[in-house]
Design a protein around this nucleic acid. Structure first.
Lengths: 150, 150
DNA sequence: AATGAAATGATAGCATT
DNA sequence: AATGCTATCATTTCATT
C-alpha cells in the first residue's frame, strides 16, 4: 500500500467507473501495472466493491429516520439474535453498535411516514431483546455519505 | 421510470462496474436501448455517480464516532454558518439535520483516538452556533451502508 | 515491477424497423 | 423505443526489459 495505491483509491472512490486507461494516465503509470494494482486492491479487500449512488427521491424513498435502540440488560445473549434480525429488514440501510447507551443506531429509509409506521410496528418493535426504541426524523442531509479522507 | 429502469438501478447499485453488455443481458434488453436508459438515468440525477467502496481499515481509518450536536437557541441564523463549516471538515463523512434535539448527528471517521481528540478540539467544538456536543464511539457496523430497498 | 503490443471484448453512434 | 451493425476505444494477457 504505497503512494500510488492511495492515489488509485482516491480516484476510484470519486469515480468508480473510471477506465483503467484514464486512471493510468491520471496517476502517471502505463495501463498494465495500473490494472494489476487495481486487481490487487480488489483482492486484498481494500476495494470492497463498486456501487452506483442513487437518489432516494428518484425511487420515491422520501422519508429517512434515525432509530436508537436500547437492549434489555442481562439479556446480552440476545445481541446476536438482534443483529441477525435487524440485518433482515431491508429498509435498515445502516446499523451500528455503539458504546454505552443507546446500544445501536439504525438508519431507516422508507417511502413515506405511513411506511415507516408499518415497518416500525411490524419489524422494529418486535426485534429480539429490545427494551426501548427512540425515533427521530431526518430533516435533511448536510453532508451526504462523503468520500473517506485520504 | 418503469420496471426496466428499476431493474437497471438495482443491478448498478449492487455492481457499479457492470458492463452495459452484461447489464443488457441480465435485464433482457439489447445493448443500445440499455445504454440509452443508463445515460438517461445518469442525466436525470437518479444515478448521482459511481463509487468504489473502500475498507476504512485498509486506509488506517480505524476509529469511527457519532457526534450529536445541539445548537444554541435563538441563534437560528447560525444554522447556515454551522452547516457550511461542518461540510469543510473532511473527517465528517455524514451530517444530518434532525427534528428536535439533538439538532444534528455527525459521523466522524479518523485514524485513531488521538486523531479524534485533535479534530474534536480543533474543528468540532469550535463550529459556529454550537451549544453542546456529545460523542459516542462506534463499536462496529452491523449493517454497513446497504443498498436502497427497491 | 513496469512497459509495449496484440487479441478479445465493450461502448457509443447511426441507420432501420 | 427497440434492434443490429460498425468503428472506436478499453481490457486483459503475455512476452520483454
Amino acid at each position: 500500500m504505497d503512494r500510488t495505491d492511495r492515489r488509485i483509491l482516491a480516484e476510484l472512490q470519486a469515480d468508480g467507473r473510471l477506465s483503467i486507461t484514464e486512471l493510468a494516465e491520471r496517476i502517471g503509470l502505463s495501463v498494465s501495472p495500473c490494472h494489476r494494482r487495481v486487481r490487487a486492491l480488489e483482492e486484498s479487500g481494500a476495494i470492497k466493491g463498486y456501487r452506483a449512488q442513487l437518489d432516494p427521491a428518484a425511487l420515491s424513498l422520501e422519508f429517512s429516520a434515525i432509530v436508537f435502540v436500547t437492549l434489555r440488560e442481562g439479556d446480552r445473549s440476545a445481541v446476536e439474535a438482534f443483529e441477525t434480525a435487524v440485518a433482515e429488514v431491508p429498509n435498515v440501510i445502516q446499523a451500528q453498535r455503539l458504546f454505552g447507551d443507546p446500544d445501536y443506531i439504525l438508519h431507516v429509509v422508507v417511502r413515506d411516514l405511513a411506511a415507516f409506521q408499518r415497518i416500525y410496528d411490524a419489524r422494529l418493535s418486535s426485534l429480539p431483546g429490545v427494551q426501548r426504541l427512540t425515533s427521530t426524523l431526518v430533516m435533511k442531509s448536510v453532508v451526504e455519505d462523503r468520500t473517506l479522507p485520504l
